[in-house]
C-alpha cells in the first residue's frame, strides 16, 4: 500500500519542474507546456487527496481543472500564432511591446 505522501512528493516535484520551465525557458510553446505540467501536478495531488479522504470532490475538481486547462491552451496557442504572425518569433525576450 503506497500512502498518500508518496503521491504528494511526485506532485511537488512535477510542479517544481513546471516552475523551472516557466521561469527559465524562452520558447513560448515550451512555457505553455510547463504550465500544463504544473496543472497536472495539482491534478495528481487532488486525486491523491480524494483517495485519502474517501471523498469524490477531488475528482470533480480535477474535471474542472481540465476544462480550464483546455480553454487556456486553446487561447494561449492562438495568441502564440498571432504573435508569430506579427513578429516572426516566439522568443519571449523579443516580445516586449507591453514592457515599459
Amino acid at each position: 500500500m503506497v500512502d498518500v505522501q508518496h503521491y504528494l512528493v511526485v506532485s511537488a516535484a512535477l510542479f517544481s519542474l513546471g516552475v523551472i520551465g516557466v521561469m527559465f525557458r524562452r520558447n513560448l510553446i515550451v512555457i505553455l507546456m510547463s504550465l500544463e505540467l504544473m496543472l497536472n501536478a495539482v491534478n495528481l495531488s487532488f486525486v491523491a487527496f480524494s483517495r485519502y479522504l474517501g471523498s469524490i470532490e477531488g475528482q470533480i475538481f480535477v474535471l474542472f481543472v481540465m476544462v480550464v486547462a483546455a480553454a487556456e491552451v486553446a487561447v494561449g496557442l492562438a495568441i502564440a500564432v498571432a504573435i508569430f504572425r506579427q513578429k516572426g518569433t516566439i522568443n519571449v525576450n523579443e516580445i516586449n511591446i507591453m514592457k515599459w
Partner: peptide, 8 residues
C-alpha cells in the same frame, strides 16, 4: 518525472 525533466 524523467519525462517531465525532458519536457522542460
Amino acid at each position: 518525472l524523467i519525462s517531465g525533466v525532458f519536457v522542460v
